[in-house]
Amino acid sequence: MMRLLTLLGTPSIPLLALVADLLLRRRLFSPRERRALLWWSASLSLVLYSSTLGYVPIDVYRAGFSSWAPVVFAALALAVATRSLPLALTALVTLVACDVPIFRSVNLFDYAIDPMLGIVAIGWAVVQGVRFAKAEKGARCAPLPVGAHGVRPSDRPPHGR
């Protein structure tokens, strides 16, 4: 059990932010911001871990050691800041945590994403996708609203007839 716990390693800053959000009864992020963070985490983890496990020929993880990675990340944070201060602050804390560094790694990706957050975010994204697909299917199969004179909108003659 302890071995499995140590396997989890160090948490990323967005994971800590989401945990803090839960502990603060969802006062840290708005639902829209939470969704954005989870979509971002799902996308990033898919790209990073596909590369790490060798399914993508590009070495994405190495970019996290480079000098331009924090610049790109800071630019993203600035772009986000105009729409969401909490998300921009999460990005800023991620940058600072890596620059200190607070954990053993000096790779920006180890602070921006972790496998636990990746699994949670991908799981959440899959659930969202399934819900969306079901809703779409339901909308297509549902009885169409009946018009004021008992004629379905689709039964109405097309324009110009």
């Binding site: 396997l7 990073l48 790490t52 993880y61 790694s105 790779n107 990706f109 972790d114 496998p115």
Partner: peptide, 13 residues
Amino acid sequence: AHRIVTSPFFNLG
């Protein structure tokens, strides 16, 4: 002993 970080995926492999 302590671990060194060489992989982002659970530091495994």
